[in-house]
Design a protein around this nucleic acid. Structure first.
Length: 643
RNA sequence: GCGCCGGUAGCUCAACGGAUAGAGCAGCAGACUUCGGAUCUGCCGGUUGAGGGUUCGAAUCCUUCCCGGCGCGCCA
């Protein structure tokens, strides 16, 4: 509704300008800073002033007089330096929103061309517990998936498991050579298995440092992992299995799930790489280096592309001189498969314990049409931009220009630990080292995802039980979980993706201000009001007819401001999807909640005796509920009935 | 050296090229007979890193610098 109105007004203004001055102008539409000034603003007169050599306010006035005023407009005014401001019929928009709810967000312009989008996220090495950096990845990835689905794409979520990599090899070495455990003993280790691995991984790092000779064990293990044969490979499979199961459980606490787990081991076993490599070789995109420092390697020259200008070494090694394949090589093959361009497919099986489908060397043929994307979005931290560029260059070299163009790197910045938190957890010695501390799985520095969630839940439980001493334990637990999820998800979502987060425990555990629980609390308030109305025998809802009949005057500026903000929610979601800046949606939700909370104090409903006033206030509250539900669903934030 | 990201209130961060640069936290002062104080109201706090340019209009675009983070492996 609002969108149509805005489009109609924009067209009217454009036509008026053409009639008056014979000029074709692109008409920019925006929102005035406050409702007193209007609901929709056109700053077009300022631009015309120079061309027409006239006062912008005069021009704006002429345009205002010249436009055909649609019936949803209540007034048109010139404000400020020459803004043409339009006031809408408040009761009309409010009634429409009450009647129909919020519309779907406008669909993206490329939806005819791009239907299926594969989103890859989480991608945690299966050798240790997930930490908060991984949580940023998974939460952003999950919200991205929800947003893309909401605007109309067909989205498939993949979680890549590097089960043949160095990191896993190191933990295998830790179990077999450092702790000297047998396969059965490892299998019998109690949960949380991934937490045990967390410490072991750090320990192995130190153990290598004590004696460099021990690195030979890593090489040997890595080799066995890649070949898939021998005791080390078997231990590797067990460890990866158990750790991934734990990661899935951790993510499940946040309602984050996956359509498909893709295993690197399957990529190796099923010759994905050699297939891709053969294509690269035939296109002349890779060449065997005869001399120089890359002698004996197959390299992909990158010097042709401007993107790589200025590199010290404009070539990327794809196959090492010992014949093993680098990460990029495998990733090019995987990316080709995602687009359905490889000419090969995985086999698939369902992992019964978790219910998730995964790739495998043996199993069913593609049961759900996995892969074959029109666009691929890889949620990977910004440090890997260069690698992602190389993957794109690989697709280009194979002549897949469109796939290269549709290969999107969703780059977010890393999470470090704030000074205070690093010191609090004993990672920073006393002193005024005033830099935030980078997390390091290798050194065991970081905050485990589970530990953070536990702390959040326990803090939430304390808070809730204090307020609701009579609440049964089951309800208490469920609520604490919901609050913890909201706190964490909002914390990750509100930050601009291109900013480094200095994670601070106290800040994350705070439930006041710009937080997920704040959103929940404001929603609970509306729901309480409705419950109380019902208990008092009043209707807990208002009809659109009633609101329309009360007229626009009934909507005071602050009530109306909230209603208008709710009405712009679908556009905010569309902007979120288009820009891939997820904080837009999070901040819009916050904006709604802040507006509602302010109104809550100024405009009581239950005690209000004037029925008309009460109904408008109730309508505003209902609209807020509509808007916050719309956004909470996208952010994955549960909205409890009480808290 | 080259590339990417950041520099805005004491701290953490917002602001589609537009109106008086806004929030949260911290600090201070308050909120009736309270739809639940996880809230709200007010105060304090700014040369938007610096200079030049483009524009009717710049935190935002261009440019030259300065500072910080991260990349530029036969690691992933």
């Amino acid at each position: 509704m609002l969108r149509q109105w805005e489009q109609q007004l924009t067209a009217e203004v454009g036509r008026a300008i053409e009639r008056l001055y014979g000029l074709e102008t692109s008409v920019v539409i925006m929102q005035p800073p406050s409702r007193e000034l209007g609901d929709v603003a056109f700053p077009v007169a300022m631009g015309l002033a120079r061309e027409l050599r006239r006062n912008p306010r005069e021009i704006a006035g002429e345009i205002g007089d010249a436009i055909d005023r649609p019936d949803f407009v209540s007034d048109v005014k010139v404000e400020g330096a020459g803004y043409l401001n339009v006031f809408l019929r408040r009761e009309r928009l409010a009634a429409a929103l009450l009647e129909d709810g919020l519309p779907d967000p406008p669909t993206p312009g490329d939806l005819d061309r791009v239907r299926k989008v594969v989103v890859e996220h989480t991608n945690i090495n299966p050798n240790k517990a997930a930490h908060i950096g991984h949580l940023r990845n998974a939460v952003l990835g999950d919200i991205l998936v929800r947003v893309l689905e909401r605007v109309g794409y067909d989205v498939e979520v993949q979680n890549y498991i590097d089960d043949t990599g160095v990191q896993l090899a190191d933990v295998v070495v830790g179990f077999l050579d450092l702790e000297r455990r047998t396969l059965d003993e490892i299998a019998a280790l109690p949960e949380p298995f991934d937490h045990h691995c967390w410490d072991l991984y750090a320990e192995v790092g130190r153990w290598y440092e004590e004696d460099g000779e021990r690195l030979a064990l890593r090489r040997r293990t890595l080799h066995e992992l890649e070949s898939g044969e021998g005791e080390r490979a078997e231990v590797g499979r067990l460890v990866a299995r158990r750790v991934v199961a734990r990661h899935l459980a951790t993510m499940d606490r946040l309602s984050i799930g996956y359509d498909l787990l893709t295993h690197e081991s399957a990529i190796l076993t099923l010759d994905f790489f050699s297939t891709a490599f053969e294509q690269l070789r035939q296109r002349g995109a890779v060449a065997l280096e005869e001399e120089g420092k890359n002698a004996g390697c197959w390299v992909m020259p990158l010097s042709a592309s401007d993107e790589f200008a200025g590199l010290e070494d404009p070539d990327k090694v794809i196959v090492r001189s010992d014949g093993t394949v680098t990460y990029v090589g495998k990733d090019i093959a995987y990316q080709l498969w995602k687009f359905g361009l490889l000419g090969r497919d995985f086999r698939y099986r369902r992992w019964e314990e978790t219910g998730v489908w995964e790739t495998a060397a043996e199993g069913e043929e593609n049961p759900h049409g996995y892969g074959g994307a029109d666009r691929v979005v890889n949620v990977i931290d910004a440090r890997q931009s260069y690698l992602q560029k190389v993957v794109r260059a690989g697709l280009e070299a194979l002549g897949h220009e469109e796939a290269a163009a549709e290969s999107v790197h969703f780059a977010y910045e890393m999470v470090s630990l704030s000074r205070g938190t690093a010191r609090q957890l004993g990672f920073l010695p006393e002193g005024d080292d005033d830099v935030a501390l980078e997390m390091s799985g290798r050194k065991g520095i970081g905050v485990k995802a589970d530990d953070l969630l536990d702390r959040l839940e326990s803090a939430a439980r304390d808070e809730v039980s204090q307020r609701n001493p009579e609440m049964p334990a089951d309800d208490l637990d469920r609520l604490a979980r919901q609050i913890a999820v909201a706190a964490l998800r909002f914390f990750m979502a509100k930050a601009t993706t291109t900013r480094v987060i200095a994670f601070d425990l106290d800040e994350a555990l705070a439930f006041e201000g710009e937080t997920g629980p704040y959103l929940q609390y404001s929603t609970v308030r509306v729901r309480n009001i409705r419950r109380k109305l019902e208990a008092a025998g009043f209707p807990s809802d208002v009809t659109a007819e009633r609101i329309e009949s009360l007229g626009g005057e009934a909507w005071q500026d602050d009530l109306w401001d909230l209603a208008l903000a709710v009405a712009t929610t679908p556009e905010a979601v569309a902007r979120t999807a288009e820009s891939l800046e997820l904080s837009i949606a999070a901040r819009h939700a916050l904006d709604l909640a802040q507006k509602f909370n302010a109104i809550y104090h100024r405009h009581p409903i239950l005690q209000e005796e004037d029925e008309a006033v009460r109904d408008v206030r109730l309508a505003a509250a209902r609209l807020f509920e509509t808007g916050i539900e719309y956004l909470a669903d996208l952010l994955g934030i549960p909205l409890p009935e009480r808290m």
